[in-house]
Design a protein around this nucleic acid. Structure first.
Lengths: 356, 356
DNA sequence: TTGTAAGCGTTATCAT
DNA sequence: ATGATAACGCTTACAA
């Protein structure tokens, strides 16, 4: 694995020390070294100390491969994702690492780029690498075929669930997110609430809309504009849809948007029309995609789907499965929460953005 | 590595087949299996076929750990990054995978979260895992201490370079990016060009500014507003700085921004002032951060720092080093390029955004 | 308390 | 053309 001795090497040619080297230096046997370094068995303190000293002097690092070959565990999991681009994968990975880092588990990152062939390839490779478990993250709430792993490694699905009902999936609560947004707007005294969102063919925007609708129903209200404005996930659709909504319902006093990007577009249209946010119209976004939401003028109140927590839960369950704890198939939903900013009338002091 | 037989397991308890199982089923020895499966040595076609058949029937997947233990290569590299959050890491990783994927090399992703302790920990772990090589990606152009790996594994630094001059680093061409922006604006007939950017204490914005200055010098022009407007990396600074610039130099006809976020803020101020973009003032951003740049109205012409290529080059050089090819220490700079959109007067038809 | 040796799953070097 | 067998680096019975 390590290339040394090549003519181009700048580092001094050196063999990586093994237990044998440590044993020789400490004047003991390899078995003793192992015990000393792993605090196992009965050893004289002096011996243990001598071994530890020898190990550190040589800069000994145990070879994980050999350990794994022996133990049957690699302390390695993989995250297979179709989406590392968008803002999506990042908080998720953060959560995964939150849970995994504590356990000294390393993470293989595999990007399928939405290509089933690539996914299959990665699955094969991971099988061969004997990863302890796999997290399969989809971008949208849809049902997908189970990952093609032969070995029976534990797999946890994220957002996109497996068609096999005995598989386990962690996902976001989009209905709940919609409810959160609706309740918040109601609490802020808004009653003529419109909704602009992404493609109707996707479950996520439909669920968000359903959540809002549920709140409106409970309050005996109906949707401003008489319909959900489904469209694309672009700022431009946000701008256009806002025009349409205001045309259909000029007295609209709040707009819930299916994404922060849409909300940006909406806010732009509102400003062009000299409508004040939140004075005339309150706006709620979805995603809590920091640079988008915080950079907006005014900063956006938005539903945070809690992807970091989704990642954390997924990794935690995966560790459970790896440890042999029974994990029931089905879907675990992680609650969303609401990030309050100024676009709905709350006023907050926030730390300045520090990222490039 | 694989947990089976646990009471909670949903999959049928099954041992992962080894060469021995294949050998037994094919009625040959393990050595023969190895040769057959790896197309080595002299074997009768019939035998080879029989082994291959047995392997596929059993769903045999060679254990990479054992192979690595034997060969000394893990076909594994790690990317250590301080930044997986921003838009930054993503194109970079894409490039890395472009280069690595061809070689069936898997990638460990390690996020330090800017914590030296975490970095040290990761370095240790990677040493123990005997990764073939490591890419250390920093967020900013700065000099950092070499990664604390004892083993002499090849390391390539990205953007942030190592203080050891014999280490190799791949980075972006920020001066060149500034030149690109300046030339483009000049070519578009602008002569009163201002510059709004991030913190002066960072090298990146200073280099971008230097690139622009260089072009202006060559053209005998000077910076609109008489100074570079250094500030924070926020939309808000973009808005405020635009006010300042226009106050200092009302006849400004172009603004080069050190980031797309800044450019968004600038464009917003311009619209508030009823200045047309690009009619009255052309705007160039930096980053080509798709959702920001394309979502802007008008869409932003912007310098693409070519991070994907940076990632590709880094991975390629790393593979070279792993293969033993001498790689000189120093810095390799990857040229930036200009993404033309409407904010500088170009008119393009672009595919609609499809991402959430 | 310490040493010896078997075994984890491969590949490679010999014999045969 | 195929089969034993010794590595690879480690852990762990078991023997001393």
């Amino acid at each position: 694995m390590i290339r040394r001795g090549g003519r181009g090497d700048r580092t001094v040619s050196q063999r990586v020390p093994t237990v044998r080297d440590v044993a020789a230096r400490a004047g003991v046997s390899v078995g003793t070294v192992s015990k000393a370094l792993n605090n196992r068995g009965q050893l004289r303190d002096e011996t243990r100390a001598r071994v530890v000293a020898a190990a550190r002097e040589l800069g000994f690092r145990p070879n994980t491969l050999a350990q794994s070959l022996q133990s049957g565990r690699t302390y390695t999991v993989a995250v297979i994702t179709t989406d590392r681009f968008g803002r999506f994968g990042n908080p998720l990975m953060l959560g995964v690492e939150d849970a995994l880092g504590a356990d000294r588990v390393s993470v293989f990152l595999c990007d399928t780029r939405d290509d089933p062939i690539r996914e299959y390839h990665h699955a094969q490779t991971l099988d061969e690498r004997r990863v302890d478990g796999i997290i399969v993250a989809g971008r949208r709430k849809q049902t997908r075929a189970p990952l093609a792993v032969a070995s029976g490694v534990p797999v946890v699905y994220v957002i996109a669930r497996s068609s096999d009902p005995s598989d386990f999936c962690v996902t976001t609560d989009d209905v709940g997110g919609g409810v959160l947004a609706g309740r918040h707007l109601l609490a802020a005294g808004r009653t003529r609430i419109g909704h602009i969102t992404g493609p109707e063919r996707f479950a996520d925007p439909r669920e968000r809309a359903a959540g809002l609708q549920q709140v409106l129903d409970e309050a005996g209200l109906s949707l401003a504009g008489g319909q959900v404005f489904y469209g694309e996930w672009s700022e431009d659709w946000g701008r256009r849809a806002a025009e349409m909504l205001l045309h259909a319902a000029p007295d609209t006093d709040a707009i819930f948007c299916g994404s922060d990007q849409l909300a940006r577009g909406v806010v732009e249209t509102l400003r062009d029309r000299r409508l004040r946010v939140p004075g005339d119209i309150a706006v709620v976004g979805f995603d809590n995609w920091e640079p988008m939401a915080a950079g907006c003028r005014p900063p956006l109140t938005t539903v945070d789907p809690n992807l970091r927590e989704v990642g954390r839960v997924a990794a935690t369950r995966l560790l459970d499965m790896i440890a042999g704890t029974p994990v029931e198939g089905g879907v675990e939903t992680v609650p969303a929460w609401l990030m309050l900013r100024e676009s709905t009338g709350v006023r907050l002091t926030e730390p300045p953005l520090g990222s490039n």
